[in-house]
Nucleic acid binder design. Structure first.
Length: 173
DNA sequence: GTCCGGAGTT
DNA sequence: AACTCAGGAC
């Protein structure tokens, strides 16, 4: 539900959704049209079908447990690089970063050069190899969402401003 | 590289 | 009215 969808909007729908489908078995045996009703409020309706396919695959082919292997996760419908990394980090406890549009924007401004998602991911995993990667990763997402927005970042409120390239030398208007 | 999509933000 | 949204499939 979070794919290209604002987190506050996705959260509202998800809370209703998880109330009707508290267990994965219910989702796998459900009427797809009923699942689609939730996604119709969010757009990108193809995610409904992909979600059902992925959940059924985990139940029927993975013993009901999320596989903790990047290659295996990518086999699931709707699971790309980002979601695979989120699951490996938050579900499996592995040392993976997950870089969304917020993290790319924050780190690119901080470094002063455009970064690819794979580059930003490597930077985070090396910089926090000793630990604390998950809370830092989430903090960077929240920073990009609440302070370092795409339009007019609120640099005076940013805790990273003293070391940030964007703050020391903002781009010409 | 392009498309998907309703909804919140500027 | 334009932009953007915790990306992924093609």
């Amino acid at each position: 539900m979070l794919i290209r969808t604002r987190s506050e909007v996705a959260e509202r729908v998800f809370l209703e959704f998880i109330r009707e489908y508290p267990e994965p078995e219910l989702l796998c045996s459900s009427d797809p049209e009923r699942v689609l009703d939730y996604f119709s409020k969010l757009g990108l309706p193809s995610r409904a079908k992909r979600l059902i396919q992925a959940v059924c695959a985990v139940l029927e082919e993975c013993g009901g447990e999320i596989p903790c292997d990047y290659r295996e996760l990518r086999r699931l419908s709707g699971v790309g690089d980002y979601i695979a990394r989120v699951l490996l980090s938050r579900v499996c406890g592995k040392h993976y970063s997950f870089v969304d549009s917020n993290v790319i924007r924050v780190l690119s401004r901080f470094a002063g050069v455009p970064l690819k998602a794979s580059e930003a991911a490597g930077i985070l995993e090396e910089a926090f190899a000793g630990g604390d990667l998950p809370p830092v990763n989430v903090a960077l997402i929240d920073l990009g969402s609440g302070v370092c927005g795409p339009r007019r970042p609120r640099c005076p409120e940013c805790p990273l401003r003293e070391e940030c390239s964007y703050f020391s030398s903002p781009p010409a208007p």
